[in-house]
Each structure stands twice: as C-alpha cells, then as structure tokens.
Design a protein around this nucleic acid. Structure first.
Length: 933
DNA sequence: GACCTGCTGCGGATTG
C-alpha cells in the first residue's frame, strides 16, 4: 500500500521510524483515497488520526488545493492542542499550514489565520459555529474545503453538541456548494450504521465503515471490601487499592467527592506521586497530573470521567474502578485506558463497596464480553434547530424557509422533519422577536440582542453573554452552601430541588453540615456543622446515579440463571465478591421468597412507607415513583418522599398501597397523571430553563402563549428521564398478572439497594395549590398549617407572605385572632365569610366604638392618613372608602390617635379596598383588647 | 441527574 504514497510522505514515514502502518491505517487508506465517506472505528492508540491524515495529505500533494482544505473537528480543547503538534509534524514538512482555533488560543495566534490562510484548521464544533455565523472574512476561505474530519464522534453523538455539528456540516455543504468528503474517527460503538449516517448526512458519496474491534479482549477482577461501615470503607478501599497499584495506574471514581476522599486516604497511607484529576481541579494541577502520567513519574491518578476521554496520558499499566461505572461503554472506555500499546490486553480491577455493586460489576463484565454496549441516544431537540436558524440568519442576513428546510432536512436526525413543524417553530421564534419576517425572508429580530449581550455589564438575570450563543453546553444552575456567610461548597440546583430540605444533614467538602435554610432567590443554602449519623446524607448517597438498561438486562439474566454464571464468578471474583452474590440469593431462599426480577415484585410495608422491589428499567422506576409522589401529595401529605432505582421504587407518606390504585386506573388517566407529575418535576423546570434562550424567550412562561416551548421542554424531559410507553406496559403486565405481586414482611437484600438512593421530595413551588386546598374555608395559624402540611413553619410563612402579594385565586390574607392573639391566615376569597362567622366574632368587634384611631395607608408613592372611630367603620364605611384614593393598599398602619404614649401599632399588607374596612375593625379590636386587659 | 465538554471577528488606531 505504501506504493500508492507520494515519495515525500514515504520519506516522512521513514523519518518516523515506522516499519509499517498500523492495521487501521492500512485499512482506511483505500476508501479515503477513493473519496468515500469513511467511518473509522478503533480503540484509542491505534493511530486513527494518521489513518485519516495520510491519505488526505497524499491527495493534497497530488491535487491543486487551496486553503482552507481540511477542517479537523474534535470535542476537547486539550485534544486540539495535542493534535496541532501531531498534524503539524507532517504538514509543515510537506509545506502545508496548520492552525488551531478554540476559546483559549491567544488572540494574536487567532489573528494570524487571516494573514496566512491555513490548509488545515483544527477546531471544536463551537469553533465551526463561530466561523460560519460570525467570521465573515475567514469563512470565505472555507469555500475551498475538500475534507472534514470529525474525531471522537462517539463523544459527540449522544449530545446536543453532536446535533449541532450535524447541522453545521449541512450548512457548510450548502455554503460551499460542494459535497466535501466526510471522515469520522470513533471508539467502539454499538450502532455503527447510525453513527455513519449521523456523520454523512445528505452527502451523496459512497460510504465505508472500517472497524477494528477487539474490545472483548480484556481481563478484569472484581473485589469486594469486607466492611460495610461508611467510614471504614474509605480506609479499606485505600488499603486495597494501595496493594493493587502498578505504576502508573488510573483510578476511576464516579464522583468528584469520591475522588477527593480516596486521594485523602491514599495519602494517609504514606503515598506520594498520587494526583487527582476532575473538572473542579485547576487547569495547572490537571496539567501537572497529565504530565506526570506521560513522563512516568506518577504512581497513580485518581480521576472522574475527565480522563476517560481521548487525552493522551501515556502507557497506563492498570485501571482500577472504585465502584462499578454506570454503563458498559464507560466501563470499556475506562478499561481501554490501560494496555494502550497495540495488541496489549487491557487489565482492570473493580472495587465494590456493597453487595449490589458486585452484581452490577458482573453484569458489566458479561455485557462487555457479549459485545453489547449502549445504543447511541441522539438528541433531536428543536432548540438546536432554533439556534441554527438564528445562526444561518447571522451568516446570511436573510434566509428563506425553503433554504432552511432543505438544510435541516439534510441531516440524519431531522431527515423526517415536517414542514408544518418547522413553520410552528419559526412562528414561535417570530413571536418572541428573536427573528422577524420581511418580504418572505427571515431576518434577525431585536430580541436577539436582548438575550445575547455583547456587553458584559449590560447583562441581567435572563441575558447571556454573546459568546454563549455558539455553544449548546448548558451551565447548570447551582446552590452555594454558606456557613456564616462563607461558601463551603456547591450543589447542583436540580439536586437541591429534588432531595434537599431544611434540617437535612449533607456531606460536602469532607464535612457534615446541617441545612438551616434554603434561599430559593439567592440560590444559597445556610448550613451549620453537624456530626455524622444525625440524619440522612443525600450528597453521599446521591452517588447512586442512573444506570444503563443494559446493566438491568444482565442483572436479570444473573438473577434468573444464577448457576450458569458460577464458573465465570470463580474466574473473575475474589472471595468476598462471590460471598456477596451468594448472600443475595441465600437471603431470598431463607425468606422463602421468589427472587424479584422481571416477573415478581416484592412489596413491603412499614407504617406509611411502601417498598416495591423489582429489577426494572430505571426510567420506568423513575416514572412510577413520580406518579406515586404526585398521588400521595395530592391525597395525604406534602411530607412525602419517594425513591427510584433499578432495584425498584418506594413511597413514604401513604397509609394505603397507592401502587394498587395505579394498577386499577385506565391508561388515559395514568398518562394524565404522569404528565402532571413531570410538569411539577425540577427536571422539567431545568430543561425549560436550558432551552428557552434558544427560542428567544426571556419573559415569564405563559401556559397559553408558550405552548410550543412547554411542549418541547416536556418532550425532551420525558425522553431523557422518563418513559410513558414502557411504564404503561409494565402496569399492564401487572394488571394481567404476568408480573406477580408478593406481599412480604421483608423484601430481602435488594431492598438495601433501593434505600441507598436519596429520597425525592415534593418541590416547594408546588405549594400554591396545596396551601389553597388546606386553607379553603378556614383560617389557620402558621403553626397549625405547618402541622397539617408537614412543612417547616419558617418556609411556610415565607410562602404565605409571597402569596399575599398575588392577585389570583391563591391570594391569601391574615388577621389577628383577638381571643388567642395569634395571626391567622385565610384565602382572600374566604375572608368576608370568615368575618361574618360566629367563630371570629370578637376579632372584628371593637370594645369601644368611640375611640379615635389614626390610619396610615400607602400605595406606591401615594399616601393618606385618616382619623376615624370604629363607629364610622360600622355605620358609614362608604364615607371612609371615599377618602382612600387607590384600590390596592400595600401597607395599612393603625394606631391610637389621642393617647400617643400608647405605643401599640397594627399593620396589614397587600389588601384591597373591598376588605380594608374589616381589617381596620380587626386592628382596633386587637389594640383595644391589649389596652383594656 | 453523577460526570464531562465549550465560549466574539474584524479592522483601525496606537506604539516602539
């Protein structure tokens, strides 16, 4: 094959001291040389970059090419920096220019590309977005592009970045009017045809998939720690890992917290040259860790997914996973970091904390050996289309619907997009004024500049920096933990909404904290130091994250045919692990129970808590637990919680088996409840917040006006976290008796796996309706309501004060119960009835009707002072109302007018003219009762 | 719902 190579390239290969090309390089050469769109699938370290580069450079030498000739796209800035040197080594020797573009490239270097146009540009999807939308001069040179290489496609295909890129490629094709050749480089994926179609889009070139696949060839050992005590666990994990480390080792964990915690314990054992690497570690320290790995000085690096990606880290001897990863692809990717030398066999160890960790590890192993991994989960969000429509208008000033439709339909993802759907989208964008229609063309609207701000200082709560327009990566909202005003940590907002409430104990920054107050407006949580064991520790437990359905499938296989796997277990497990698995099964045998798997649900009930143990797709579990939480908060109490996991789900706060109620509902009713419960979920709110800027929506969401946005946010939320179809099917199978329900006193060892998940609690902003229902027809003190609803008095009072300002059916007001001298709250709409009721007679009946009182009323800048006697209020209220020149009284102050030594004062807020007379009577009755007692 | 990823261009004025 080398014969087809240009003399100059052959010389360079000699200079590299390459005896021959790698297998993947040989296999790719012909199709790429012949102009085929080519997808190259091979593990990291097989020379994929050169596999794409050599045939391209070879043709560049033969053909008359003008810069820019090649666009090389890769997801990481660090990879761009690596690749620049790697590519430049060849290119510069052949007389071609290479240039990189990402956000951290110095301005000086960026400017260079207009003076010396590069033949090869290495950038990110966002970089290409910027160039197409905004780089009016440079993008003209893109008209010469003949090749586009997309590296690490497997990293992009599951996210909006990938969707964005696929539209960008169609835009590029439309812009240059030439069907450029597309080359994709990928790690092993499960559905390679889909990946290929995703990349090739509307291209009419012939295509070829080159696959070099030996991911089934690996060695793994599953270890289980002996101790279940959470403090001893870290110590024994560190001791075990310390024995296993072979310099250099990568230790993967599933959270940043675990990374830090393990590192601390490893250092306590006297280890040096051990580093940490995760997204919150500074760039300098990350560089240090990477460098020490490459030059062989590091003994080990403890890391999260950051080092799972393609960054070159040198030859890794061994990979250790602290607790099993959550998907087969992640498992293989981590494993693949060792044995990098071609044909080396990856070696890995898994360290398990719990029995179910062992079960999951075995499931991962079996699935990987079967060559089964997760299918790509392509994001077809319309927010991406919206963003690209605006991008195209930025590029061309004006676009016709037909052009847009053709470009978008060129992608694999939107190949079936209907015109009516696109028109709905466009109409919504026009309504939000981010674009406008003029003479049948779409143009940029004023709304664009309201969201995407050029000037940092002009930003406000909904404004975003203009640079963010080019990226579809969402910056999640967070809460800061504050102790005496000092920030001690950060937590994801969705996590807070779902799990954290006042008085919880959480663990962060290596310490335990008690939650004093959650401030929704400032996104802060006030905390105070606490001791371990005082309560639940959601942040720590929260590490039990969503697990892939493949793991579920294999756990079922293991549960149903346990004996079949005995030999495998002997091969890959230590003694503790084997005992763990056997323990699970023994436990069910002893209890005389069937093993909960796909046909059996074990139901256990203790007081108001119901536990349903069944091995199940996590999205079904999540959907069911949301339905249950919805029902229980509607029927019984807000002081409810649920859990969901692949081992089943639970609900707390109901005296009856609500799951049985669900079984007896018809599908329509279930769907209705599912949708309602999702609309209440923080996951939906987060999705809404994420996508709304793309649609140009900045003001408050209106159920009628923003139907399009709401529908899309709901669709995306369901697609990501829930499943209606599978849930209905599951319920149907229970209804038909194909899945058996077995009631029991003890649901066996898997119940612990469910309890290991943090509780989901109802979100406080759902309160309006519940408070309305609780207040209806009565008047209550905050403490009484707190008792009824199971919410802290403090947060309830804040909520009531907020509702007092509302002008809708949830509006509330308060008065003094003169008999008990407590403040009572009631619905505004009920107030008059309450005044007239027997029960509160004395609260609105002054003792002396002839005393004079001074009343101060305020509304905005308007103010009025009235002197009056209770007599006037009772006999001539119209006369007094005439003296009030506004309808909404923001503040009403009442004090005795004559006896000024008397200091008592009564205030009311946000009341209308319709009830003010009664409240004044209430104030006077109260002040007199204080005075005369 | 844990983890990760990315993020103005152009041209003109000024300075050594």
């Amino acid at each position: 094959m080398l014969d087809h190579l240009d003399q100059r390239l052959r010389k360079l290969i000699e200079e590299k001291n390459w005896m021959k090309l790698t297998r993947v390089q040989e296999m790719s050469f012909e199709p790429i040389s012949n102009g085929y769109n080519t997808l190259v699938i091979a593990p990291t370290g097989y020379g994929k970059t050169e596999a794409a580069l050599l045939p391209i450079l070879n043709r560049m030498l033969k053909e008359d090419v003008k810069p820019v000739t090649v666009i090389y796209i890769t997801p990481l800035k660090a990879l761009i920096n690596d690749l620049l040197y790697r590519i430049d080594w060849w290119a510069s020797r052949l007389g071609f220019l290479v240039n990189r573009k990402h956000g951290e490239v110095p301005q000086k270097e960026k400017n260079l590309r207009l003076k010396r146009i590069p033949h090869i540009i290495v950038t990110t999807p966002e970089g290409l977005e910027i160039d197409l939308d905004w780089a009016s001069r440079f993008r003209e040179h893109y008209k010469n592009v003949k090749w586009v290489v997309v590296d690490e496609i497997h990293e992009l295909i599951n996210s909006k970045r990938g969707t964005q890129l696929s539209i960008l490629l169609e835009r590029l094709k439309y812009f240059i009017g030439y069907d450029f050749q597309r080359i994709g480089l990928s790690a092993t994926v499960s559905d390679e045809d889909k990946v290929a179609q995703f990349l090739f889009g509307s291209s009419e070139r012939k295509m070829k998939i080159i696959r070099l696949n030996d991911t089934r060839n690996f060695e793994i050992k599953i270890n289980k720690l002996g101790n279940d005590n959470s403090f001893a666990l870290w110590k024994s994990a560190a001791e075990k890992i310390n024995q296993l480390i072979e310099k250099p080792t990568l230790v993967f964990t599933n959270s940043r917290f675990s990374t830090e915690r393990l590192h601390e314990e490893l250092e306590k054992l006297g280890n040096k040259e051990i580093y940490v690497h995760h997204s919150s570690v500074s760039r300098d320290l990350k560089n240090l860790a990477e460098g020490e790995l490459r030059n062989g000085n590091a003994k080990a690096v403890v890391c999260t997914k950051t080092l799972e990606l393609g960054i070159h880290v040198g030859d890794i001897k061994k990979v250790i996973m602290l607790r099993p990863p959550t998907s087969v692809s992640s498992f293989l990717q981590r494993l693949g970091r060792s044995g990098h030398i071609v044909h080396g066999v990856p070696k890995g160890e898994i360290i398990c904390f719990y029995d179910f960790d062992v079960l999951e590890s075995l499931a991962l192993y079996l699935s990987a050996k079967d060559g089964k991994m997760e299918k790509p989960f392509i994001d077809d969000g319309l927010d991406v289309v919206a963003r690209e429509i605006v991008g195209m208008i930025l590029q061309n000033q004006k676009m016709s619907i037909e052009e847009i439709f053709n470009i978008i339909r060129g992608t694999y993802i939107y190949r079936n997009l209907e015109l009516s759907k696109l028109l709905d989208l466009v109409n919504y964008l026009v309504k939000n004024n981010i674009i406008k229609i003029e003479e049948n063309y779409l143009k940029l609207g004023q709304g664009f500049f309201k969201i995407w701000r050029f000037n940092r200082d002009a930003k406000n709560s909904w404004g975003k920096d203009f640079s963010e327009f080019f990226s579809l990566i969402n910056n999640d909202e967070t809460f800061s933990l504050k102790h005496n005003g000092i920030t001690v940590g950060e937590i994801d907002a969705v996590y807070v909404y779902k799990h954290v409430r006042a008085n919880d104990i959480i663990r962060i920054s290596g310490k335990f904290w008690k939650v004093l107050r959650i401030n929704m407006h400032k996104n802060t949580i006030d905390v105070t130091p606490a001791n371990e064991g005082e309560g639940e520790i959601p942040i720590w437990k929260g590490e039990n994250m969503s697990k892939s359905p493949l793991i579920v499938n294999y756990i079922r296989k293991i549960m149903e045919n346990f004996n079949e796997y005995y030999l495998t277990m002997n091969e890959i497990m230590d003694k503790n692990s084997k005992e763990s698995i056997i323990k699970i099964f023994e436990n069910y045998r002893k209890l005389g129970l069937k093993i909960p798997s796909r046909d059996v649900i074990l139901v256990e009930n203790k007081e108001d808590e119901w536990l349903y143990t069944v091995v199940i797709d996590e999205r079904i579990s999540n959907t069911l637990s949301h339905i249950l939480l919805y029902l229980v908060t509607k029927k019984y109490t807000l002081n409810a919680s649920s859990r969901s996991s692949i081992y089943g789900f639970s609900i707390k706060g109901t005296p009856v088996d609500l799951f049985k109620d669900i079984i007896n509902m018809n599908d329509r009713k279930i769907i209705k409840i599912i949708l309602r419960s999702i609309l209440r979920s923080p996951l939906y709110i987060a999705t809404l917040k994420e996508i709304q800027p793309s649609f140009g929506k900045i003001s408050k969401i209106n159920t009628k006006e923003d139907k399009f946005l709401i529908k899309e946010a709901l669709r995306q939320t369901i697609k990501r976290y829930f499943t209606i179809k599978k849930t209905l099917e599951f319920i149907r199978r229970v209804r038909e008796g194909k899945i058996k329900i077995v009631y029991t006193e003890n649901a066996g060892s898997l119940r612990e796996a469910i309890f290991a998940h943090a509780q989901i609690r109802p979100w406080l902003s759902d309160l309006n309706l519940t408070i309305y229902q609780a207040l209806k027809g009565g008047a209550y003190t905050v403490n009484e309501l707190s008792e009824i609803l199971g919410i802290s008095a403090k947060s309830l009072e804040n909520k009531l004060k907020q509702l007092r300002r509302n002008n809708n059916k949830y509006k509330v007001t308060s008065f003094i119960d003169v008999d008990s001298r407590e403040t009572r709250w009631c619905l505004y709409e009920d107030f008059i009835d309450i005044v007239k009721s027997e029960e509160y007679y004395s609260s609105f009946s002054p003792l002396n009707n002839n005393e004079i009182f001074a009343v101060d009323l305020k509304s905005g800048d308007n103010q009025v002072e009235i002197l009056l006697k209770p007599y006037d209020l009772i006999n001539n209220p119209e006369e007094i109302l005439r003296k009030i020149p506004f309808n909404n009284i923001e503040e009403a102050k009442v004090r005795e007018a004559i006896d000024t030594s008397y200091q008592f004062l009564q205030k009311y807020y946000h009341v209308g003219k319709d009830i003010i007379v009664y409240l004044l009577l209430n104030a006077i009755a109260y002040l007199q009762s204080l005075k005369y007692s």
